[in-house]
Amino acid sequence: MTSITQAVEFDADDEETFVPALGETHSARAKQILRDHPEIRGLIGRNPWTAAVTAAYVGIQLAVAVAFGWAGASWWWLALIVAYGFGAFLNHGLYVVVHDATHNLIFRSRFANRVVLLVADIPQVLPGAMGFRACHLAHHSHLGEMDGDTDIPHAWEARLIGHSTWRKAMWFLFFPVFQVLRVTRVRGVATPDRWMIANYVVNFGFAGLLGWFAGWTAVLYLFASFWFAISLHPLGARWVQEHFTGDEVHDTANYYGPLNGVALNIGYHNEHHDFPSIPWNRLPEVTRIAPDYYLTLPSHRSWTKLLIGFITDPAQSLWTRTVRPEAGGRAAGA
Rank of each mutant, 00 (worst) to 15 (best):
S317W: 12
D274K: 10
A290Q: 04
L80R: 10
Y256P: 09
W76R: 12
P314A: 13
D36F: 00
G188E: 11
R110N: 11
W75G: 01
F228N: 09
Y84Q: 05
G87T: 01
L222N: 08
G42T: 10
W76N: 01
L90I: 02
F10I: 05
N203D: 15
F204T: 09
L137M: 13
A331Y: 15
Q124N: 15
G148M: 11
F204R: 06
L264R: 02
S231P: 03
W76L: 05
E285Y: 00
H103C: 07
L137Q: 11
L222P: 05
D313N: 10
A253F: 00
H163K: 00
H273C: 07
I308M: 04
E285F: 01
G236L: 00
F174W: 01
R194A: 13
T217C: 05
Y293E: 04
S164V: 04
A214L: 07
G211K: 14
N265S: 08
F178S: 09
A198Y: 01
Q179R: 13
E15I: 10
P276M: 13
V97D: 02
W195A: 03
D100H: 14
F107W: 02
F226M: 08
I4W: 01
D274E: 13
S317R: 03
I40D: 07
L222E: 00
E271C: 07
L62C: 08
E326S: 08
V125H: 06
L94C: 10
V58I: 04
A7S: 15
W280P: 02
V82P: 00
A51F: 05
N265P: 10
